[in-house]
Amino acid sequence: MDKTRRNNLKQARTLQIWNVVYDVIEVVVSLIAGFTANSSALIGWGLDSTIEVVSAGTLGWRLHGEIKGIDEEKVKRRQKITLNVIAISFMLICIFISYDSITKLINKETANWSTMGLIILLVSLVVNPILIYFKRKYGKKLDSPALLADAKDTFICLYQTVVVLIGLLLVNWLGWWWADPVAALLIVPYAAKEGYEAYNKAKNINYNTAQND
Rank of each mutant, 00 (worst) to 15 (best):
I43L: 11
I43R: 09
G44L: 14
W45L: 04
W45E: 14
L47W: 04
D48V: 02
S49G: 02
T50V: 12
I51Q: 11
E52N: 12
V53L: 03
S55C: 10
S55Y: 10
A56L: 05
A56V: 03
G57I: 03
T58W: 08
T58M: 09
G60A: 14
G60I: 02
W61C: 05
W61F: 12
R62L: 03
H64C: 02
H64W: 11
G65C: 10
E66D: 08
I67M: 15
I67K: 14
G69L: 13
G69T: 13
I70P: 09
D71K: 15
E72Y: 04
E72K: 15
E72L: 14
E73P: 07
R77Q: 12
R78K: 10
T82G: 14
L83Y: 06
V85C: 11
A87H: 04
I88K: 15
S89K: 08
S89E: 09
M91S: 09
L92G: 13
C94K: 12
C94N: 14
I95D: 10
I95N: 06
F96Y: 14
I97Q: 07
I97D: 06
I97L: 07
Y99K: 06
Y99N: 02
S101F: 03
K104M: 14
L105Q: 07
N107F: 09
K108F: 08
T110D: 04
T110K: 15
N112P: 10
W113F: 13
S114E: 05
T115S: 08
G117T: 09
G117M: 04
L118V: 09
I119V: 10
I120C: 09
L121N: 13
L122P: 07
V123L: 15
V123T: 03
V126S: 02
V127R: 15
N128C: 05
N128S: 02
P129I: 04
I130A: 07
I130R: 03
F134C: 01
R136L: 04
G139H: 07
K140S: 13
K141Q: 08
K141N: 03
K141G: 00
L142S: 11
D143T: 07
D143M: 06
D143V: 06
S144I: 02
S144Q: 07
S144Y: 06
A151L: 05
K152F: 04
D153E: 00
F155P: 01
I156M: 11
I156N: 11
C157I: 10
Y159S: 11
V162D: 01
V164Y: 01
L165I: 06
I166H: 07
I166N: 05
L168R: 13
